[in-house]
Design a protein around this nucleic acid. Structure first.
Length: 523
RNA sequence: GAGCCGUUAGCUCAGCUGGUAGAGCAACUGCCUUUUAAGCAGUGGGUCACAGGUUCGAAUCCUGUACGGCUCACCA
């Protein structure tokens, strides 16, 4: 404080300020972390322990220790054994991991070691290991450090399977302390910005991402078994096509041209169907330059798949099967709770026609009399830009979306909001398209593909006209895609599923940021 | 983009209608050979997000900024 302002302290204080100001030039938010690094006592202490280790000839970042066992493996193989049975097991086991707790009794000590499979307790006794190692463990090994151990198994008085350490290897010194052991890491911002800390401190986070990985795996397995081919198409697009959304724009220097990060892989996948790859899918990142919310991240993961000789109705069945397959192999039960509601995935799922739902609510005027429709939309505050289909779907969403808790297929989409979908054979005003809603959220979008190149060209032209009407979300003309269709695309149906939102449901996560390792945040 | 709320020790949180900061965990020094949120005794640690303002006096009241959360809008 003020009274401590002796010459020496004042000098070091001044130096710290200078460093901070340097940091400030580059990044404001970095300032706090940098200045902490300079001043934090625990950090400095751990650094001095590191130097002490080096002085003793111990590499605090040593390589070369190869664990032959894992915590999970030892627990599942030996935890049920009695103490007597364990005494018969004379093998030495070797493990490596992070020290996550330490209980020191002076002449003996307990700790827990954590690896990818779980945790196991270790025990050290002064008289069963050389004194140097024992002192090292007590004085220089901190919670957070990585270590390798070798020893035999036994059971403590309380019955916990424990490794009696005969050899200890320093593997990595942690210079910063771990988050608190009991409450974990709560601060949402730190959890997202420093996800590694979240993963260390919060078991649930690890479980969420394991589930995410499993979901992706299951989807691949499901489609592979049905003879789909996984493919990769460009992320950099000369035309942002396949959906109506605002793209991220980037620039190719050598060609001096703007490119767009893909808003959907759709048009490239259908080119592959033209090429004879009758069943294809792509699972990957898609980018949309729009708002960030609990349900939106600028980059998100979706799967799109296309199946020749299938219709949108076939895809309803396929998606039911696929999603149920994923649910059964992750949650385990087709009925489970999400947030405040129970969701029942039992098949068959409900199917609702947009037009019928609206006619039931308002009478046939709503779908036949444009004046009535637009008046209704206006009264609900819907921005329709004179586009009938937009007014219809928005009215539907406003009124029904929230009630679609159990998986529901919504179909009968209007033509003018579906520039890539095939016209319905009975009603040219609507297309053979559906969306899957779960818990009031759109999870999937699918349709029988428009494979008539002349119709497709006209649809693109209509979209360009909508742009001129002032609609900021429209589909651009893609002549290259039209010419692909001119070579002939077999009748095909395709679907896109939002993986992040599906994982949210399966992990009971209320925000999309909980299911993306590094969600978008301001720098 | 708009509204509301938040930011206090490494972590989790208190801090009433203004009187220049507290706890638990972690850390440090001791003691302790079966603990597991180990225990006991002691110690250190804070530009209370940042910048202004009001005031004799601000973590507390006001304004602005940054970052975050929630809701809404656009969308998947």
């Amino acid at each position: 404080m003020g009274t401590q302002r002796g010459g020496e302290q004042y000098d070091s204080f001044g130096e710290g300020c200078f460093q901070s100001q340097l940091g400030f030039i580059f990044c404001d938010s970095q300032w706090k972390r940098d200045s902490n690094a300079m001043e934090d006592k625990q950090f400095e202490l751990r650094k001095s322990k590191l130097e002490e280790l080096r002085a003793m000839g111990i590499d605090p970042y040593a390589n070369g220790f190869t664990p032959e066992h894992t915590a999970g493996e030892l627990v599942s193989l030996h935890a049920s054994k009695s103490p007597e049975e364990l005494e018969q097991v004379e093998d030495l086991f070797s493990l490596a991991g992070r020290i996550v707790s330490k209980r020191d009794f002076g002449k003996s000590a307990f700790f827990h070691l954590s690896d990818r499979t779980g945790q196991i307790q270790g025990f050290m006794q002064k008289n069963s290991i050389d004194e140097k190692t024992y002192t090292l463990f007590r004085k220089l090994l901190d919670v957070g450090d990585f270590a390798g151990v070798r020893g035999e198994l036994f059971k403590t008085r309380t019955g916990e399977l424990t490794v009696r350490v005969r050899e200890l290897f320093f593997l990595t010194k942690a210079l910063r302390p771990l988050p608190e052991k009991w409450h974990g890491l709560q601060d949402v911002e730190t959890r997202y910005r420093q996800r590694y800390l979240d993963l260390i401190a919060n078991q649930r986070t690890k479980e969420i991402f394991k589930t995410r990985s499993k979901v992706i795996n299951l989807i691949r397995r499901f489609l592979d078994e049905r003879d789909f081919l996984e493919v990769e198409t460009p992320v950099l697009h000369p035309i942002a096509g396949g959906a109506t959304a605002k793209p991220f724009i980037t620039h190719h220097n050598a060609l001096d041209m703007d490119l767009y990060l893909r808003i959907a892989p759709e048009l490239y996948l259908k080119r592959l169907v033209v090429g004879g790859l009758e069943r294809v899918y792509e699972l990957g990142r898609t980018f949309r330059n729009e708002g960030v919310s609990t349900k939106h991240n600028p980059e998100f993961t979706m799967i799109e798949f296309y199946q020749a000789y299938a219709t949108y109705e076939d895809l309803m069945n396929l998606i039911e099967e696929l999603v149920c397959y994923v649910v059964e192999n992750t949650v385990g039960d087709t009925l489970f709770e999400y947030e405040d509601k129970k969701i029942d995935f039992k098949r068959p799922w409900n199917r609702i026609n947009i037009y019928e739902a609206l006619r039931e609510k308002f009478g046939s005027e709503i779908t036949e009399d444009d004046q009535f429709l637009f008046a209704r939309a206006d009264s609900m505050g819907i921005n329709h830009n004179g586009i009938k289909g937009k007014a219809l779907t928005e009215i539907f969403e406003a009124l029904f979306e929230d009630s679609l808790v159990n998986p529901t297929f919504v179909y009968g989409f209007p033509l003018d909001v579906s520039p890539l979908a095939r016209k319905n054979d009975d009603d040219p005003e609507v297309v053979d398209r559906f969306e899957l809603y779960i818990y009031g959220r759109e999870i999937a979008n699918a349709f029988s593909e428009l494979n008539d190149p002349i119709d497709q060209k006209k649809r693109f032209t209509d979209q360009v006209e909508m742009k001129e009407k002032g609609e900021d979300e429209y589909h651009e003309m893609d002549n290259d895609y039209v010419s692909a269709l001119e070579y002939g695309m077999p009748p095909t149906a395709g679907a896109g599923i939002g993986i992040d939102r599906l994982v949210m449901l399966l992990t009971n996560s209320s925000s999309i940021r909980e299911v993306i390792f590094f969600p978008h945040l301001r720098p």
